[in-house]
Amino acid sequence: MAIAIYYNASMDLTAVAFSLEELMARRARLVRRAQQLPPVGARPVTVAGRVAGWVSPAVLDAIAQHPGVHVEPEAAHLMPVPAQRLGMDAVLREIAVIMRDAGQIRSWRNELLDVIAEGRVLAHIERGAVRPLGLLTHAVHLSAWAPDGRMWVARRSLDKSTDPGLWDTLSGGLVSAGEDPASALLRESHEEAGLAPVELAAHSPLRTVLRMHRRLPDGYQVETVHLSDCVLDAATAPASLDGEVMEFRCVDMGVLRDMITHGAFTLEAELCILDSLQHRLSAGQTAVLFSG
């Protein structure tokens, strides 16, 4: 196969990028990994009458007797209990505590996320309870570039409960309760990389990369992944403020290619990076070969 490598004057001449065809083929393989059926035996969950998630048999056994939980052969229903003055938030709060005490929550975060079903926010719940109930989350990621065409990447702390030590986009995280994705992007970029909003003033609008469905040790991940790109000033040096990142690197395309080839990134991060590369290629900003 003939290999054509093109350079853009705005990029470091040592940067090697990827062909659009190769990127699309690799992305297709990763998407298959990101689309899995719910765990065996899981039942659909409704919240306040709307289809919202999937619950495993073990989690259902733990919460089945709690007020506000009604179990039927085909589904589990979570609902307010007016007679006991338990609104939807109160029911979900108590269910989360029961799940934690039963060992069904791996990490209690003291952070609330929106409970979203059929396009509506119905209530809020402890972040650690989301995946055991298979509830939808929204994640934001930032692909950050240097002016010379290199990409900033961040290595996750070894203390992270998911994918410790793997590499990630420069910043990323979940949208919190009552927060919009654009605000979440600015917050996460500040907490994880020390970036001020003014440094991201020219970031691209968030776009949807995909919705993931994965079986994970802590439950079922149903997550819409959103991505924005930006070019950081050459003098910018990211610095973690929340301790969730152990190392930052600004890598050329040759190093990035090797990292992707050797599985150095989380699945979400690699999908975001491939999407970002694909957008740059489509815009005529880079070119190249990916051989992994």
Rank of each mutant, 00 (worst) to 15 (best):
111 E>C: 09
100 R>W: 15
115 V>K: 02
97 V>C: 05
102 A>C: 01
108 W>Y: 07
129 A>Y: 03
108 W>D: 02
100 R>C: 05
116 I>D: 06
129 A>P: 11
109 R>H: 14
127 R>S: 14
112 L>M: 14
128 G>Q: 05
116 I>T: 14
102 A>D: 01
117 A>W: 08
131 R>A: 15
121 V>F: 01
120 R>P: 03
100 R>G: 10
126 E>Q: 11
112 L>W: 09
102 A>Y: 01
113 L>E: 12
109 R>D: 12
130 V>P: 06
129 A>E: 07
116 I>H: 00
123 A>M: 07
105 I>E: 01
99 M>V: 04
100 R>F: 10
100 R>S: 08
131 R>G: 08
98 I>K: 10
129 A>V: 12
116 I>Y: 04
127 R>G: 13
102 A>Q: 11
123 A>W: 06
113 L>P: 01
109 R>C: 10
110 N>G: 00
112 L>I: 03
129 A>S: 13
98 I>F: 03
103 G>C: 00
128 G>L: 08
116 I>M: 09
126 E>D: 02
106 R>Y: 04
112 L>F: 10
98 I>N: 10
122 L>F: 07
130 V>I: 13
100 R>I: 02
129 A>H: 03
122 L>Y: 06
104 Q>D: 01
122 L>Q: 10
104 Q>F: 01
117 A>I: 06
97 V>I: 11
128 G>D: 10
126 E>R: 02
100 R>D: 13
121 V>Q: 07
129 A>C: 06
127 R>D: 11
124 H>S: 15
115 V>N: 11
105 I>T: 08
127 R>V: 00
101 D>R: 12
129 A>G: 04
114 D>L: 03
124 H>A: 10
121 V>H: 01
98 I>E: 10
127 R>C: 08
101 D>E: 15
109 R>E: 14
124 H>L: 02
106 R>K: 15
119 G>C: 05
106 R>M: 13
98 I>W: 03
131 R>L: 14
108 W>T: 06
97 V>A: 12
125 I>Y: 06
110 N>Q: 13
120 R>G: 00
98 I>D: 03
119 G>R: 01
129 A>W: 07
122 L>A: 02
122 L>G: 07
123 A>Q: 00
130 V>R: 10
105 I>N: 04
129 A>K: 00
117 A>C: 04
97 V>N: 07
118 E>L: 06
124 H>W: 09
129 A>L: 02
103 G>V: 00
102 A>G: 06
114 D>G: 08
117 A>Q: 09
103 G>H: 01
108 W>F: 09
125 I>T: 11
99 M>F: 06
